[in-house]
């Protein structure tokens, strides 16, 4: 799919889609959405990019190796469970603080959101790993 239109479109849509993905991730706690759906949207954005350019280019854009991303996502999710243990609470107990925001009411930030971020990372990682592995030309790219 070596279409110039697609490439140009992708250049614009990629950041937009990623932004949308992050919004879905963040609002998931209060509205439909969350790490999983957000992750899928982000992965879709990159997949589109891979289709428009080529998988190697996409890997370059992502920078971080997907295997590391998956591992990091798992670690993030686990860490969100360990944070409350520092305070002597049980594993996975939600810990919340309010972060003052310049405009509007303060934002509530808590370990469950961190957990959701981990989910997001894993989902992006695994989806792209699958899709890119399948799309990649038949040669070793290790």
């Amino acid at each position: 799919m070596n279409s110039i239109i697609l490439r140009t479109a992708t250049r614009f849509t990629l950041p937009l889609l990623l932004l949308f993905a992050i919004v879905v991730l963040l609002q998931g706690h209060n509205k439909p959405g969350g790490g999983f759906i957000g992750g899928l949207i982000a992965a879709a954005a990159f997949s589109l990019h891979a289709l428009a350019f080529d998988p190697a280019e996409t890997r370059r854009v992502i920078r971080i190796d997907l295997r590391t991303l998956i591992g990091a996502g798992l670690v993030t999710a686990l860490v969100s469970g360990f944070i409350p243990m520092v305070q002597g609470k049980t594993f996975m107990t939600g810990v919340w603080t309010k972060v003052p925001v310049a405009m509007g009411e303060p934002l509530k930030v808590g370990t469950p959101l961190l957990f959701d971020l981990g989910v997001f990372m894993v989902v992006v990682g695994i989806t792209l790993l699958m899709v890119l592995t399948l799309l990649e030309p038949e040669e070793k790219t290790d």
């Binding site: 998931g28 209060n30 959405g33 969350g34 790490g35 999983f36 469950p112």
Partner: peptide
């Protein structure tokens, strides 16, 4: 701390 109960279950109650 969440209004989407399904999501709260997923990331908190049954994380």
């Amino acid at each position: 701390h969440g209004r989407n109960v399904v999501n709260v279950i997923l990331v908190d109650f049954r994380a």
